[in-house]
Design a protein around this nucleic acid. Structure first.
Lengths: 353, 353
DNA sequence: ATGAAAGCGCTAACAT
DNA sequence: ATGTTAGCGCTTTCAT
């Protein structure tokens, strides 16, 4: 294999425009101290020759790598891919991340890392040394792993922590969990429901409690009771069966249930069917995530759309800006919306429509 | 932002081990002419210091970039991501591609390119200039775009053309379309079906005809007729409605249908329901793709699994080997398998079971 | 406002 | 089998 050289380099452009390398560099990087006329001349040569800077060379000389690294949990990601059940977190990340990166001349690279392993730090160090990313996006559960955030902070690499409200280095971006909890609840309240059950996520995900808080607040605002209406699951199907059964077996069962994940919503649908409850006639159901499957259930599910794409897009922007500006203060929150489908309806026997 | 330097470089390792840079380089790259004792000593220093080579520097000095570029169609990819209907082609690519890359110390990067645009070449040139990938994976329809294959060939960059049997530069890898066509057909024949309809893909996808050929061959082997049993769609839902209607409205309708895509299978399911045909009691249905949705239909669909992950994995291996070996001869074919679910059953009135 | 020189971390080519 | 030298393409100093 022949030694592959860059076909058009900064030298060619400099020669063509009759200026120094440095001037070309200034034009590429949009730096000051170049007269408009000069700039135009150089730009013309760049366009003419189809010159594009080598990011390897740019990185070598100590500037940016134009690479953003997205760190995902290895096991969870691979098992989602293998299962082929429509969980599209990675796709939504790419949608928001790649496109926003592209707008700024950056690329996004996914890296799978095992959070629970005792050599997380080694894995991450290796990725950083090899790629020298300009920014890192931490998805849960990495976002709250001090080994990871510590290493990144120490190395001075800007990073975004997705789905957490914890204080700390880098910046935190959540998806409006509290807001979403209230959003789903308000929708059901408007439909006349008064007993609204909530199937929460596991306690070790901080977003679980934020969603509960949103639900509780909306209930209290409407002066509705919360007692015996909240069960916990672990986001998985089986835990949803247990939680939904508990809610529906009670003496005063809810007429509507909000499930904190699509899998738990699917489970609730199943429990309802087994008990002869029709959705949405006898039971309204709202899901979280809005992943592909909720479009294909019978009925399709009303769901809170997690704005993954918008969130990652925002993270990329902040990461790129991080070179210039100070880090944003506080927790950034990107709100999603409720997608109403066929699983929610007016409460039975509540008069109107 | 401080000028970020590599924390541990080849120099540190060389100093620590008391050898020259070149010797360290030889150890890193597993090159000959290093005595085992020497190699061990250097490796010990590498491990001790946690040294990982900078791919930017490696690329700069004319060697590999350790980057594989996967080129996907921009519009199709983005609209799949936006639709969130479970098409997981990209995920399966990543599953096979990223993991295999990682095994060899490479990374995979996705790049979206608009095939139909008149500046494909400019887009591709820019990506190549910026990233200098060691190999490129072309997914349909890029695989058969001469502007793209020509450019890559000219630049001497190894590339894989996925899903095509055309001769040409780079190497072609298909997913056993002919085999899959026969596989689905044989399954139905074994269930006693004699009139087996086939809804093919559009004529401008070469794989469509390969699948038809597989079906036809299996039918002929079993001495079954093919006349009036093949319709064409464009892989989309609407075209599936038309094709399925045509097949089921005929005087001598099929008792089983093979659809060349999940969307067309969904459409067939819909047409069957409208006509009062129960699947699989009255009509057996086999789908292609095996994407997430077929797990959630009623009934879940028997489907030919397209081995995307295995195919991309193989492509990566060949690309990495391409540095050393000659390009593989002929078309490489990676076979998938049939996943039997609830949409296929023994033909009605055929006795046994 | 522009240019010249030095160096980033690594490997190819050429010594020894 | 090992070391030395030159240079990849670019940006950072530091001149002018």
């Amino acid at each position: 294999m022949a030694r592959r050289r860059q076909s058009v380099t900064i030298k060619h452009v400099a020669a063509d425009a009759g200026v120094s390398l440095q001037t070309v560099s200034r034009v590429i990087n949009n730096e000051p101290n170049v007269r408009p006329a000069m700039k135009e001349r150089v730009q013309a040569s760049i366009d003419k020759l189809g010159y594009v800077p080598s990011i390897a060379a740019q990185r070598m000389s100590g500037s940016r790598s134009y690479l953003i690294l997205a760190l995902n949990d290895r096991d969870a990601t691979i098992s989602d891919w293998r299962a082929r059940e429509g969980r599209d977190w990675v796709d939504q990340m790419l949608l928001g991340g790649m496109l926003t990166c592209a707008e700024h001349g950056y690329r996004m690279l996914i890296e799978l890392v095992d959070t629970h392993s005792d050599h997380v730090e080694r894995e991450l160090s290796a990725a950083i040394a090899a790629l020298q990313p300009d920014g890192v996006i931490l998805t849960p559960p990495h976002s709250e792993n001090p080994l990871i955030t510590g290493l990144l902070a120490e190395r001075g690499i800007p990073f975004a922590r997705i789905g957490t409200t914890e204080e700390g280095p880098g910046f935190a971006i959540t998806m409006g969990d509290r807001f979403h909890g209230a959003l789903a609840t308000d929708h059901l309240i408007e439909l006349g429901h008064e007993r609204i059950g909530f199937i929460a996520g596991p306690i070790d995900f901080s977003l679980s409690d934020r969603r509960i808080a949103g639900w509780r607040q909306a209930m209290e605002n409407a002066e509705l009771p919360c007692e015996d209406l909240c069960e916990r699951g672990d986001f998985g199907f089986d835990s949803g069966i247990v939680a939904a059964t508990a809610l529906l077996e009670s003496d005063d069962p809810p007429t509507a249930i909000i499930a904190s994940s699509d899998q738990m919503a699917l489970a609730t649908l199943e429990v309802a069917r087994k008990r002869g409850l029709k959705v949405p006639q006898d039971l309204s159901l709202v899901s979280f995530d809005n992943s592909p499957i909720v479009r294909f259930t019978q009925p399709p599910l009303t769901a809170v759309d997690q704005p993954i794409s918008a969130t990652i897009s925002r993270a990329v922007e902040l990461l790129i800006e991080a070179r210039k500006k100070a880090k944003p203060a506080g927790v950034i929150s990107v709100h999603g919306e409720l997608v109403v489908r066929g699983s929610t309806a007016r409460v039975p026997g509540n008069g109107a429509n």
